[in-house]
Design a binder for these strands. Sequence first.
DNA 1: ACGCGCCAAATCGTACATTGTTTGGAGAAA
DNA 2: TTTCTCCAAACAATGTACGATTTGGCGCGT
Lengths: 236, 236
Amino acid sequence: MAETSDFKAKPPGGIDPIGASSEGASVYELIREDIIEGRLAANERLVVTDLARRHGTSTNPVREALQLLRGEGFVIFTPNRGARVRPIDQEFVRDIYEIGVLIEPALTRWFVNMATVEDIAELERIQGLIEENNFADTFRHSELDTAFHTVMYQRHYNRHAAELWWKHREVLRAVSRRFNFTLARRAAIMREHRELIAHVKAGNADEAAELVARHVEGSGRHILEHMRARNAARAG
Amino acid sequence: MAETSDFKAKPPGGIDPIGASSEGASVYELIREDIIEGRLAANERLVVTDLARRHGTSTNPVREALQLLRGEGFVIFTPNRGARVRPIDQEFVRDIYEIGVLIEPALTRWFVNMATVEDIAELERIQGLIEENNFADTFRHSELDTAFHTVMYQRHYNRHAAELWWKHREVLRAVSRRFNFTLARRAAIMREHRELIAHVKAGNADEAAELVARHVEGSGRHILEHMRARNAARAG
DNA sequence: ACGCGCCAAATCGTACATTGTTTGGAGAAA
DNA sequence: TTTCTCCAAACAATGTACGATTTGGCGCGT
């Protein structure tokens, strides 16, 4: 049932500091989505009154949502001048993917040593869906790819690291959704995923970790290249 | 001037999402301090009205401060039930020092390749103060030790990583302030700092990185041992 | 062209209303 | 007498409304 089109990646249960307000989709989530998805431009002012009107609520919920977003680093405050959207630019992306390169291998290493038969079956199932989709629906690929890695990290004992990964992942996923995958990148993803599964099966923790480092590195570079290209196009 | 007793570690300028409200010490900072320093017990309820009264303000600033702290992970919210202090327990400490083990070596590697003569002089100056103090004033040691590592990380291009380090550092510093350093740990710190400076001078990035990994690892273990001991004492 | 002051706008703090949760005690059943 | 249930009143979180203070800009005058 979750294999059809309405597949939706969800965070590894555990730490996340949410605990929203009354209605299903809180103001916080909506604004956050708008920022990550790029519907709110970089550095755009976030006027409390406007947001309140737009979301059909009063100002206080918005103010609190903005503070929450500030704590998470998506919004920047200047005293007496309110909030602005923290630009998700190349620096931002580079920073978080570099952190991923450092953290994910460690998470992977642990997973390889703890993986059950079911885990591996799940990985193969998802990889099957990925290959079946074969980048036809890039959005779907994005979700599946995230699911793939979530299987590996979701049960890690270091909830902080896992949560950090998830937070970064959300951003990268949103950014990369706006681009297409190059053929080279597609091939690399498929190859590396298959190789990764093989390492997990064989229990090669070190090899798996090193592979993941390359995998994340490649993913980051790919996104940055696209961003650079787009910026160049915009400027030229 | 900063060498006397009123030495105060300050964050590496750059990203931090602060930008407080009117008065010098915002409600946010006060509550945050209370949590980190352990003046607010783990899981203690954070009642908005009380906090507002205690800090001589109305409820809204407190509410926003709590959301900010939630975003930073120091406070946990449950819908319609308000906020609680996120317990800084062994798991918490282990999580963040493990992340440090992953990130700090990378920061160090970069520093070694970028260190100027002034940087090295500054490191040696601080190390001199550390040896001069020789753990007589553990608080002062804590600040100096933080300053030592800040010199290395403050100019790193990856502001996210640097900020992450700083956030974690603040927590560890506060926790470790409640304990004394064992003799073994004291010796290790001195030795490793001196060795680190030597590596920086020689430009041995890899060796320095590996040493820092051990250094952070050792520091984390040390803190955890103390926490375990205290918990055992409390239980026994 | 350049400063000066006023005005619109938005943040920030205070007060209040509403809604949901907790608590303590009265009363019934054992 | 003890214990369990239920209810109501106190309590606190969440949402609304409003006034004060700051900021940035526009236009006026020189």
